[in-house]
Design a binder for these strands. Sequence first.
DNA 1: CTACCGTACCGTATCGTGTACGGTACAGAG
DNA 2: CTCTGTACCGTACACGATACGGTACGGTAG
Lengths: 251, 251
Amino acid sequence: MIEHTGSGDPARTLALLWRTQERVSRKGKPDLSVDRIVRAGIELADSDGLKALSMRRVAESLGVGTMSLYTYVPGKGELIDVMVDTVQATTGRETAQGWRAHLTYVARENLALYRRHPWLLQVAPSRTVLGPQVAAKYDFELRGLDGIGLSDVEMDSVLELVLGHVQNSARGLTAAAVTEKETGLTDQQWWDAAAPFLMTVFDPARYPVAARVGGAVGEAHQSAFSPEHSFEFGLEMLLDGVGRLIESRAL
Amino acid sequence: MIEHTGSGDPARTLALLWRTQERVSRKGKPDLSVDRIVRAGIELADSDGLKALSMRRVAESLGVGTMSLYTYVPGKGELIDVMVDTVQATTGRETAQGWRAHLTYVARENLALYRRHPWLLQVAPSRTVLGPQVAAKYDFELRGLDGIGLSDVEMDSVLELVLGHVQNSARGLTAAAVTEKETGLTDQQWWDAAAPFLMTVFDPARYPVAARVGGAVGEAHQSAFSPEHSFEFGLEMLLDGVGRLIESRAL
DNA sequence: CTACCGTACCGTATCGTGTACGGTACAGAG
DNA sequence: CTCTGTACCGTACACGATACGGTACGGTAG
């Protein structure tokens, strides 16, 4: 289940993200607000996953009617957009010495973000959410790459590459937990149910390398060691490549 | 919208993937079949996206009632699983000289696969679909990394890293098209609608680097050059890192 | 040839979505 | 007190997946 966001008018979405509406509201007593709704949405998604996020459930958790939400938020897509932007603010902004330490820090912070909010992986990254928190984070992350010889486009490409790797790693790290909640089946249970059947059908003669490697990976996975190591190992490789690029630009 | 797959019994799903059921069916005249259903599903997803894939629409395109599908397929999740497995068979299997050429070939083939079937990006990669085509592809892709000094787990990690990069690149490359279909808005239209508002709110003083780099990336994007280049550039970096690893293992 | 029965197919119903529309009730202004 | 704008919500609709209980027919047993 990949959720698409921001259904309609971009200007409307942006106004919401940047809170431009100046909700004066003399009349009536608004006990609801965009922030309360967004907070409730984040809580719900954190605990039960994106699939469980419905307007009805958000409204219930706030003790209001479903349609009341639409006074503050144009629709579900936009709500998710604001949730995404809001959550970016929780990443750290420490300045590190040098681009390599900076990118390592950025990678770790983003990985932690995905761990706190696994549902971010379920949101389709189709059109970037251009909210204030996203902008601030983007600015911070680029700042550590500024003035070391890379072009603007290269800075963006490098950052994108690192963040992409983080996202892949996050998938590996949180997949088990998310899938377990989604399907109600432990990885172990799933394997136990699948294994006997696979035995009869997965011919090691037809797939010799896959069988051997798959087996080894399965064993390594049980020691719960592989995903973290894979993250660090991939990051090192990337940074080495980036280092070479920077050196070539510095000449 | 990320679609989750394979709802229920793993054994049932695997039996479906490997076509173990031996549908003898003396009685009645089955003009329907798993393959026909899967083909229809792939066609529908190719042209209209995963979001448009509903049991009703698949049934309609086959000229049968919705519930008839359930005679052959346990549910929508399992249908998607079979679709995913089926589509893997279309990737090339040419043997290349050396691991670097092999990985480059594998990366390109996978990128092409995503281009042919963008909906693959919308399927949650939660639990690998262990079908015959996936197994065959995995085996082929690993074979080119066998016997060059890497451990089994390392072989898998390297492959995963490359495929992850391909997936990220595929997102960049196809995002525009998919999002356009999903939202009915061109990137250009979206920007035109968003730009005037962003001007008023996106303070270059607050986000100096982001503003500069974002602008440059936007311009580069218009020349439709960046994503392909980003794919190649990232791949080179990864392969350099892998080369270093292999050298260190060869000692 | 008839009776039977297993199976392919499907009509209907249930429950869950997002959200459009038309109220209702209340707070503040005149 | 009247008027009006707004916060909130009840209901309805158009989808979605899929459980359940038929129906109709082809092959087989007698």
